[in-house]
Computed example of a mutant assay.
Amino acid sequence: MLDNKNVSIRSASVGAMDNNVYVLTAKNSGVQVIIDAADDLPRIQALLEEGAADLYGGPAEAAVRMIITTHSHPDHVQALAGAVAATGARTAAGAEDIPAIPVPTDVPLAHGDVLDFDGFDLEVISLRGHTPGSVALLYRDPDGPAHLFTGDSLFPGGLGNTQKDPQRFDSLFADVFERIFEYLPDDTVVHPGHGSGTTLGAERPHLAEWKERGW
């Protein structure tokens, strides 16, 4: 768990592909947001209960304001229907990916949108290439480094898979370079869709290498 002034961030690795699920909890209101209800609904519910334990007087599920899907690939939505049924929360995803998500999406997201959750904001950053509607979510901690939830668009060591398609790679590289590395400082913490986290500072020296190799 990462414990910031306004928000706690919890995560779990779930499913056969070790997807990361993230739960953000506002400390002043108890409002919770799920990023990528990938799999293992009981584990997601446990994260919600942990987040709500000291902050909210009612059922943890009742505090969930939104479930955001970073992109439409099946391994990122296996528990989405169950999480919606359990919480009644609204769903959100990049507009271009909505047709491929097997659960209705309430809020189509576009680059630059800001989502207000009664205690913290998440800024939407569109990163086109891994899928057409992939998004990252940015939380700006007022007293520490920013936190960026990148789905499968940015990992330690490189970008997300673009199936060796040069156009898709060029699109993703351009968005990651312009909308992340030129926009955010090196201490920004990256929370990817699989595996361990990193920082922009750790990855920045390798940008030219990624562009040269094309993946």
Rank of each mutant, 00 (worst) to 15 (best):
M1E: 07
N4L: 13
K5C: 06
N6M: 14
N6K: 14
S8G: 02
S13A: 12
S13T: 07
V14A: 10
N19E: 09
Y22W: 13
Y22L: 02
L24P: 05
A26N: 04
K27E: 03
G30Y: 13
D36K: 04
D36R: 02
A37Y: 02
P42H: 12
L48K: 10
E49L: 08
E50K: 15
D54P: 10
G57C: 12
G58K: 10
P59K: 05
A60Y: 15
E61Q: 10
M66R: 09
M66V: 13
I68T: 00
I68L: 04
S72N: 12
D75K: 11
Q78A: 15
A81Q: 05
A81N: 03
V84F: 06
A85R: 13
T87H: 06
G88S: 07
A89S: 12
A93I: 11
E96T: 11
P99N: 11
P99M: 04
V103Y: 03
P104H: 07
V107S: 01
L109A: 00
L109I: 01
A110R: 13
D113I: 02
D113G: 10
F117M: 14
F117K: 14
D118S: 10
G119P: 02
L122G: 04
L122E: 01
L127C: 03
R128V: 04
S134Y: 02
L138F: 04
D141T: 15
P142M: 15
D143V: 08
P145Q: 02
P145G: 07
H147Q: 15
F149S: 00
G151E: 03
D152G: 11
F155M: 04
L159W: 00
K164L: 13
D170E: 14
S171Q: 11
L172D: 10
A174C: 09
R179G: 05
I180D: 00
Y183P: 00
Y183Q: 09
L184N: 11
L184Q: 14
L184T: 08
D187E: 14
D187K: 08
V190I: 11
H191M: 08
G195I: 06
S196E: 05
S196N: 05
S196Y: 11
T198I: 08
T199M: 04
L200N: 11
G201M: 06
R204D: 10
P205G: 14
A208K: 00
E209D: 15
R213P: 08
W215A: 02
